[in-house]
Structures are given as C-alpha cells and as structure tokens.
Design a binder for these strands. Sequence first.
DNA 1: CTAATACTTGACTAATTTACTTGGTTTATT
DNA 2: AATAAACCAAGTAAATTAGTCAAGTATTAG
Lengths: 155, 155
Amino acid sequence: MRLTTKGRYAVTAMLDLAFHSEKNPVTLTDIATRQTISLSYLEQLFARLRKSGMVKGVRGPGGGYKLSREVENINIADIIEAVDEPVDSTKCGGKGDCQDGQPCLTHDLWMGLSDQIRNYLKGISLGDLLDREEINNVSQRQDKKVEHVMNIKSA
Amino acid sequence: MRLTTKGRYAVTAMLDLAFHSEKNPVTLTDIATRQTISLSYLEQLFARLRKSGMVKGVRGPGGGYKLSREVENINIADIIEAVDEPVDSTKCGGKGDCQDGQPCLTHDLWMGLSDQIRNYLKGISLGDLLDREEINNVSQRQDKKVEHVMNIKSA
DNA sequence: CTAATACTTGACTAATTTACTTGGTTTATT
DNA sequence: AATAAACCAAGTAAATTAGTCAAGTATTAG
C-alpha cells in the first residue's frame, strides 16, 4: 500500500463524483474544473477505476461517470489500489532468499505494516468521508449558494 | 503523510538498528549489507533521521549509529516524516482561493484523512514492531539456530 | 601521532513515476 | 448530421527516487 498524490487525486475525484452524482452522470470535465486536475490525467485514473469496477462510464451527450456501487460500499483502500501500480517490495521476489540467512526482514515488516494501513483504509468508505466533509465544510458553502440565489430572486 | 518506498527503507533501517544496537553502535555498512540498501542512500536517510533527533552518530573506530531514544518512544510516523519531503497538497498554498468559490476540497479532505493515518502510525512504535517481528519471525529463526548449535554439540 | 574507521557534504546521474498534452476514435443523444 | 461525451494511445516534461562518486572531517585504538 502506497500513499501518494496520485491516490489523493483519485480519492478526491471519487469524492467529487459521489458528491455530484445524485441524479445525473458527472462529466470528467466538470470534475477537472472543480478539482483543478487535468482532464486527460483524470481519464487515465478513471480508466483504472472503471476496470476495477467502481465507476461506470456513460457515453454520449449527457453522459459522464456514475458510481457503480453505493457510497457505503466503496472504500478508500480500493480506490488507492485501483490507481496505484502494485509494487513488489521484496528484492527476492517473495521467496525469502535475499541474504545470508536473514531472509526478507524488509518484506515481513513492511507487509505487516502495510496490511494494517490497508485494513484501516478499507474501514473508511466514501460515504464516511462524504458525511464528514458535508457536515464540516461543504454544507456551509451550499448554504451560501442558496442564500445567493434567494438574494437574486428577491432583488 | 505519504507512504513510499523511501519511508519503507527508513523504517526498515531503523528497525534493523533497533534490533542490533543493544550494546554497540551499528554501522551503516552493516545495515546496508543486511537490508540490501545502498550505503550512500542510507547515509542520506540517516542524515535526516539524525537531524530530527531519533538517532545519534558515534564517530571513530567501533562507531556507528545508536537510537537516541527508547524504542517505545520512536514512532513510525516520525520516521517517515523525517525522510519525506513535506508536500504542499494544496494548489493555493493553503489560502483556500483555488477555484471559483469551491475552495480546496482536496485540501480539506486529504488533510483530514492524512491526519488520521498519521495518528494511526504515531500510535505504532519501533518497540511494537520489534516485538511483533521478534515473536512472529525472528524467534523461529533463532530457535532453528539453537537447534543447529545443539545438533553440532551432540554430534 | 597516525592510521583506520566512520560519519559529512555535495554534486551528479539513471531510472521511474507523476502529471500533463495532443490528437485522435467511438458512442449516443438531440 | 452535429454534438457531447467517454474512450484510447503515444509521447513528454518535471519531479522524485535511488544510487554513485569523490573529497572531505572527526574520532580513537594502538
């Protein structure tokens, strides 16, 4: 399990998607604009997310991307692993014959730790983040937007 | 908080150090040999670890590196952050003025998640890993070594 | 004191990954 | 048919990683 900006982009994009795809599919152009990620980079990320079955592409005008599962059933670990290259962190190909009788301390250690982090992130769903974000930040913004619209109407 | 091979190298090296520095300082050459990491790369990593005060270099013949705290008081998050470049994950420098009124969803989201992972890793000490490793893997090896010695003696 | 050992510093390099660009092709809606 | 979108492929610049090289400085055993 690695944790890089690439994974962050993916999680952010998925959160944006979850947040905006209540009814209609969301275009990558929209996500790109909102999250300031290049469109083609998003395309690459979503190609992987699609291959691992978390999103569905809808072609043609009015199309875009939809989540293929409920937000509660998409976890952060899956998103990150979908876009990450799997890394062989061993030097001996997992056979444990690296060195003079001290086989793969690296491997044993990091795999264990890595598993713990993975499990931890598996326990956090897109829905969890959505709730958290919604309450803490975005809802305030949306309230302001609504206010703004009401001001225009009443003016 | 990022999680890369660089951090893994650092954690592994620190664990190796913890494991071998009961009495005498451990040379980077030894760690490099045992863990198959290049010496000069280790030097770079340990320069950072020293600057953040987790290890102490002992010069001269018989010198090497020692932990400057008890293994219980060195946590994984600190090790990783010592060797990692700090990354500004925002595009607006943390001011929240990225985009058309949608300020830094990326930042809010990832910082929160990142903090959780950091806290999680802060809760795991070098001592914890040491115990775990010792019980799960190394002890078996040691047992075999003892067996081996006994076989030789009885032969 | 001096030689061996070991850390220090800095510059440099190859490989890899990241993030992005360009230029297409399909597909489905209007 | 025109358009808007996903989908695809190749290439690229910048950043990071991992490692190399070389010329130091500090320490201490002998």
